[in-house]
């Protein structure tokens, strides 16, 4: 029982990331009808905006501390962040430590700008082109974005720690009545899961309960009629693209402490997220979220030592295997709608 619970918990953080990326992909596909292969790159840009903010905040100058000496006997050189000067050492350090959550605010304008630029500058011209062309041009864009990040930040992963308050693990088992020290779970992963639920809830609520969301849903169902009613649906869809970009970006920001950002993280997640979207059903938002969590948890179960002993290598291929099975038995995915991408 403990083992099962532990695997479910372990699958949640990856599942959250899959669900958030797949949600954005489905939003873009549902509204604009575009298959966006550059969505993983948006996730990566989000993660790197966290890196950028943490670097910006810890910008420092060198002071010579006469009271201490290094091992050669020279006065010690100390890196002094500007924030320590401005806000005092304690509060300044606290801001630096909390750079990842702060990056949420920092990344939103970046992601909105990137989203707008992508949609208006490139994807707009591909509405009428075949899906293959859309896939190819966004694939090219993904390569370009990835290489730019590589040129700026280098090829190595950049560790980006979570705030100290959330470092370490807590005893989840003791909390719900199991033996203590059986189920240890890192705080930050719980934060990530809660954050993902919050974002997913916010997107669904936005679509369900606001006038804007209603118009967008109407546009997803019948774009032409909504246009004939005198509503500028293209503008709303552009905004939805930016929202999808923000969702992917925030997923990336919060993922930075879990997995140190590197330039190819976007591509790694993209391939799996596409599988997730297809399993969930092209065009179904709830399907994407459900499939994201399901596949994340399945992957974590497949990595259990007992399972690998029986079926070696299953942890590497489980997601693809499930995708093949689902596509062959339920061609529209778990919750796919009729008539989406069936030509």
């Amino acid at each position: 029982m403990e083992a099962i619970l532990l695997q479910i918990l372990n699958g949640l953080d990856k599942g959250s990331a899959y669900a958030l990326i797949a949600l954005g992909l489905t939003l873009i596909f549902g509204t604009l009808g575009v298959v966006n292969f550059a969505h993983g790159a948006l996730f990566m840009i989000g993660a790197f905006s966290a890196v950028t903010l943490s670097r910006l905040l810890s910008t420092s100058y060198t002071v010579i501390d006469e009271s201490r000496t290094d091992f050669l006997g020279n006065p010690l050189k100390v890196e002094m962040p500007y924030l320590h000067d401005w806000f005092g050492p304690e509060f300044g350090q606290a801001i630096i430590n909390w750079s990842v959550p702060l990056a949420i605010l920092f990344s939103i304008p970046i992601m909105v700008a990137v989203g707008f630029a992508m949609e208006r500058g490139l994807i707009k011209h591909f509405y009428k082109r075949p899906h293959a062309d859309q896939i190819l041009v966004t694939f090219g864009l993904a390569i370009v974005l990835q290489e730019i990040v590589k040129a700026v930040y280098g090829a190595n992963p950049i560790p980006t720690p979570a705030p100290p308050a959330f470092s370490g693990s807590f005893d989840f088992g003791a909390l719900i009545g199991f033996d203590p020290l059986q189920i240890m779970y890192p705080y930050w992963r719980l934060v990530y899961f809660a954050f993902a639920i919050l974002i997913i809830g916010a997107v669904f609520a936005f679509l369900r309960f606001t006038t804007f969301g209603m118009v967008v849903r109407a546009g997803m169902a019948d774009r032409e009629t909504v246009g004939l009613l005198g509503i500028d649906i293209d503008k709303r869809f552009t905004i939805m693209f930016a929202i999808a970009a923000v969702v992917a970006g925030l997923a990336g920001v919060m993922y930075a402490p879990i997995n140190s950002p590197n330039y190819h993280m976007g591509m790694d997640f993209l391939v799996l997220s596409f599988v997730v979207v297809v399993v969930g059903g092209m065009g179904s938002l709830s399907g994407a979220v459900l499939a994201g969590f399901l596949l994340g948890i399945l992957e974590s179960f497949a990595s259990m030592a007992q399972v690998i002993e029986v079926v070696p290598g299953i942890n590497q291929i489980i997601i693809y295997l499930v995708a093949i099975l689902i596509l062959l038995t339920r061609p529209r995915g778990l919750m796919g709608r009729k008539g989406v991408m069936e030509e």
């Binding site: 899906h131 596409f274 599988v275 297809v278 092209m282 093949i324 596509l327 061609p331 991408m341 030509e343």
Partner: peptide
């Protein structure tokens, strides 16, 4: 066919 084929 289509994108499903690509993903498969």
């Amino acid at each position: 066919s289509g994108i499903y084929f690509s993903i498969l």
